[in-house]
Each structure stands twice: as C-alpha cells, then as structure tokens.
Design a protein around this nucleic acid. Structure first.
Lengths: 346, 346
DNA sequence: GGCGGCCGTCGAAGCGCTTCGACATCCCGG
DNA sequence: CCGGGATGTCGAAGCGCTTCGACGGCCGCC
C-alpha cells in the first residue's frame, strides 16, 4: 500500500495506468493485459493488479484507450427527434439501448437525425463511435447508401426497401396488420377499416406504416373481408373529422384497426359520441405501445420497443466482432386481447 | 493537389492531420492552429489549409484530440429512464439539449440514472465527458454530493434543497402553482384543488411536485381561497377513483389544478361522467407539456422543456469556460389560457 | 542432461492530436 | 541603420493507453 502522497480518489488527479502499475509493482502493459485479458497473466499478479485498480479507483482514460486500440467503446443512437413521433416508444427504445449497451461495456452517443448525413460522416470520421443504431428508417432512406459507403457497422430499426449488406430489426408490421385483421375476422366481423398514420408519414415512405397497411389488406383479401384504409392526422379535431367521415361513408364497419399512437385516445373518446359503443358496436384493435393500450383497456399488438432495442444492440455488438448477422430480423407480433374487441351480437 | 494514391474520402482510410499538413505543405501544428484559432495564422496559409481540410474530408480524431487537449467535447445527459416519467417532456428536453450542444460543437452521451453514482464516477474518471447535465434532480439527491466531490462541471435540471456551488435550471414551479391559482381566483372561484403527482413522487422528494403544491397553497392563502391538494396515482381507474372521492368530499370545488401529465386526459374524460361540465361546472388548469394541453383545449402552464434544455446547455458551456454562473436559474411560467377555464356563471 | 516450447512479464513503439518553446521574418521607432 | 517586438511557422514532446516482439525461467521430453 504505497500510496503516493496526495493521491486520492477525488477530483483533480486522474489515476493513470502507470500509477496502477507502480502501485502493484508491475509494468503498465501487464496492467493492460490483466484488464483486457488478452494475454495470460498469473493468478497472483492478476489479483495484485486488480487490488491496486480498486485501491486507486482506476478507470482507463477513454480517449487514450480509443486512440491506442482504435475502438471507442461507444455506439451512436441516431434518433428522429422531430416532434410528433411515437414518443414513448422512442423513449423505451432508448432506455433499452443504453442499458443493453452498458451491459456490453459500451456507451451511447445521442445523435439527432436532423444533423443528417453530415452528422454521420463526422461521427464516423472522428472515430467517436464504433457503430451506429439508426431509428426511424424509411423505405428509401438517404442515410443507407452513406452507411454502405462509410463501411460503418450499423443496425437499422426499421426496414428500408433494399436491405442488402445491412442489418435491420423491426416488428413484423405486415404480420401485425394481419394479426389484427385475423382477430377481427375471428370475432365474426366482415367489414373493417385501418385508421393509419398521418398522410405525411406514408408520403415519407415510412416502412411500418406501409407494411401494416399491406398486412391488413392482405389478410382481409385472404379471409374475404371488406377492408378500407385511410390515413389519420393528429389532433383531436382532425381525428374526430376523419373518423366521422369514415363512418359516414362506411356505416357498416364493425372493426377498426388503429395504428396511430396519438389517435388512440381520441378515437375511443369519439366513437361513443358517434353512436358506437366499444366493443358492442365496434371492435377496436390498435398497433401501439402496450402501456397506452393497457390504460385504455384496448386490445392491441404492442410495439415491443424494449425488445427491439435489446436486439438491435446485440446485433450491433455481433457486427463489431465481425460475426455475421442476418440482414433482417423481424419480431413476431403478439396480440394482447382486452376489452375493446368483441364478437358480433355479444 | 498531390493526393496520395488510394486516398479517398470513403471508409477504410482515416485522414489524419499529417495528411492535411502534407497536402497543404505546412506543419501539422499549423493545421491544428488553423483549426483551433489559438494562434495567429496568415490568411493565405489559413485558406490553403482549410482547402486541404475540405479536399481530404478531414475530421480530427476524437480520441486523440481528447487525449491531447484533455477535453472530450462531449457532455453527458443523465436521464431518469425509469418509466412513468414525463415522457414527452424528457424527449423534448433531450432534443433541445442535443441541438444546442451541437451548436457549441459538443456531442451528447446518454447515461441512465440507474447506473447511479458509479456511472457518474466512471464517466468522470474516464474523462469521457467534460460536463454533466442531470435531469430529474430530487430535493435530497444522492448524486449531488458526488458531483461536488468529483468537481465535475454540471448543471442540474431541477432544484435540490441545497444548491450551494451548483448550477440549477428549472421552471419556477412555485410560481407556476401560484399562477394557476391566481387565474382561477381571477375567474371568481373560491374553492380549488390540486390534483398532483403520484404519492410516490412526493415521497421521493421530487422538487417540482413539492414546489407546485407549495405555490398553490401560498397563493390560495394569500388570496383567501380554500385549497385542498392530493396526490393522484396513474392509470385510468385510479384517477377516476381519486377524482370521484375528491368531488365527493368537496362537492363545491370549482377549480382544478392538475399536475400530472398522465392524468390530464382521464380527468377531462371523467369530469363529465361525474356530472361536471368543463368549463361550466369546473375550471381545469394544468401544469403539463403544452402539446398535450393544446390537443385538449386545456388552459395550462406549459413546462418549457426546450427552453430548459437550451438554458441548461448554455450554462454548462459557460461553466466549461470557467465563467461564473448563477446557482439557480428559474424560468418564469406563463399561462396559456384556453377553453377549460371560465368564470362563475358563464 | 540438454533443449525446445510455453508461460508470464517487460519495454518500447506508436495511436493522432495539442501545445510549448524556438526561430525566422518583417516592420517600426530611435 | 540597427535593435526589438510583433507575427507566423515549425519541430518536438508528450497525453494515457494498447500491442508487438523479446526475453527469462520453467517444465517436460527425448
């Protein structure tokens, strides 16, 4: 225990690997090898070094480590921080990402999409991160070619149209759409509608919106149901209007699939006002965060944000180790049946 | 334009400062000084260097820079990623932080509170960040003494009881509570109630909850109103129950202050069911994200998440430059009057 | 009994950058 | 016409870490 005078664990005096080496009576490289496990070290030396590490409160300097090893031990999380997105989902997702990354001894750098490709370029060129997690990927996403060009290990949340040489994780929204319709069909409903995302989201070519719609239509066709789909804007009054006009044009619809987080509440609030009790007159099933649906007693296909986050990080870590990963990982949707759906005549 | 063969801007070949120096025909240190502006450089040299920087697509290696300059140009954003928090607020806040930080040429490392003090220690000791933004600070927060000990530049969002040697930013929740009550009083209401955060939040000693309550009570006392305050749990049914029991015990309440994001919707939905039309029978004013209130046509004191985020980063940057900053920065609440409040007899 | 091989450790060479002191060069004033 | 302060540039010394090659000691094997 030869602690140099003045050496404490508190601010001001960063403990270096040389300090640890001196304290343990070994070479700095030995300390490094103990910590990284990249060479065999005798048990007795290892214990002595580890004891010194603890005694001095040593944490390797991130910059030096990154410089020497060419790994930052940081991943970037690129979030679509435009407002109006699926906020709680993003949050849950971010939590899962950070937690999982920490478990793999990595930290998370938060990057907003609106820095755009330049942001990615910068992050990559500065070697600030070893890999990237990209959220809210659109069908034709401008960042995708860039990722290929930069040869930056990445995992996408979402599902661009060309997934070659990428790694993507997503809920199987196509299947989710099918599951909703199958559920409604199983309850005996023959006419259903999808109240989808805002028109702008479809226009942007956002994968999940398109895929859900396709799934709804596919299942409807397969099961011989009548299905109509329409986008749905945000805001109480817009929703009310869209819903009213839908029911006006198709008064015999008995099943509603809602894929629009912010519409769930208003839809449930508006239906009774339009003379439809849920679930007696109208079955409602949503694709939305489970938290939201649970509160409202809503049958839904939850968006498994946490699971997606964990998977994404796991895949990225695998990529960082140069292990092969599947191009597309789709999570199987599950249906949580609650009180908002019921059979005909119940 | 002597580009070494094979040197491109794409993946694989990091461009170093030496490359730029060679390309521009100057010493590496000159390039550094051009980029940092820390020494005078002649216009002609500067332009030549900058041209080379652009031509080669040079971005300084973050690790090397951090190592040599002892600044990471990164700040940590410590978020309370426990669920059930004010999700959209957190998101808005995070957006503002990232955007503002980028404007100051800093990046943002996302850290979860649940790594706790150890996380802060690690980040600080590894010199990964130059400073820390701490959200969701409680009255007696265990991280506060640690911050002082680590001498880590920081800005707190929230307002612990002892702010000595700290820098805190927050909405003036005390004043917000007052503003709500003053508004209700101005409309002629004499009996008001505060439907607050979940009991657990008070128990945790969360500043904003306590302060709002204090503000409500202070204004009520000052203006001679009857005020009752009670916590409010989350979840539709709990809210309904709490609200019903409140109105049962105090049927003559005509003004309601709601400070619970997740309660806003259910409260508005439940009041008519309990025989109170808004605003005819009951005026409702909330302290919540404006987005939420706007949707519901609710009079509110918005939580200015963006503004707080910007301010926090600005203060932190100032701290990093060793400039003095005020210990407490309180943002003046403003009232957004909408359709949920009205005078008696209207 | 000697030698090849393995194990455990060390020293040194960078990683790419900043920064300090040194050194020209130029211009001004005396 | 020369000294001296700006002014502009350079070279070298690290920053703290990883990693490579080297090397001594030990064991087991022929």
């Amino acid at each position: 225990m030869t602690t140099a005078p003045g050496r404490g664990r508190t601010g001001g005096d960063p403990v270096t690997i040389a300090d640890v080496a001196r304290h343990a009576g070994v070479a700095a490289s030995t300390v490094s090898y103990v910590l990284s496990g990249k060479r065999a070290i005798s048990a007795v030396t290892r214990d002595r070094v580890l004891a010194s590490v603890r005694a001095l409160g040593y944490h390797p300097n991130a910059g030096a480590r990154a410089l020497a090893s060419r790994k930052a031990n940081v991943i970037a999380l690129v979030l679509p921080l435009r407002t109006g997105m699926q906020v709680p989902v993003v949050m849950q997702f971010a939590t899962a990402v950070v937690t999982t990354a920490r478990r793999h001894d990595h930290d998370v750098l938060l990057v907003t999409s609106d820095e755009g490709p330049a942001g990615l370029r910068r992050i990559a060129a500065a070697a600030m991160v070893d890999g990237v997690l990209l959220m809210d990927v659109e069908l034709e996403d401008s960042r995708v070619p860039l990722l290929r060009e930069l040869a930056l290990p990445s995992v996408l949340i979402g599902h661009p149209s060309d997934t070659t040489a990428l790694a993507c994780v997503d809920l199987d929204f196509h299947r989710a759409g099918e599951v909703c319709v199958e559920h409604l069909a199983g309850l005996g409903h023959r006419r259903v509608a999808l109240l989808g995302a805002p028109a702008a989201v479809y226009a942007r070519g956002t994968g999940f919106a398109h895929r859900t719609r396709a799934g709804v239509l596919a299942a409807a066709a397969r099961l011989g149901l009548d299905a109509v789909t329409l986008p749905c804007e945000e805001g109480r009054t817009a929703i009310r209007r869209d819903l009213a006009s839908l029911l006006d044009r198709h008064p015999d619809i008995r099943g509603l699939v809602v894929q629009n987080e912010s519409a769930v509440g208003p839809v449930l609030a508006t239906l009774p006002a339009l003379g439809r009790q849920v679930p007696t007159d109208m079955s409602v099933v949503a694709v939305c965060p489970d938290q939201l649906a649970e509160q409202a007693g809503l049958t839904c296909v939850p968006v498994p944000a946490e699971e997606v986050g964990r998977q994404a990080v796991t895949l990225l870590m695998r990529r960082l180790r140069d292990e092969p990963v599947p191009e597309v990982t789709l999570l199987e949707p599950r249906l949580a049946v609650r009180d908002s759906t019921a059979g005909r005549g119940q």
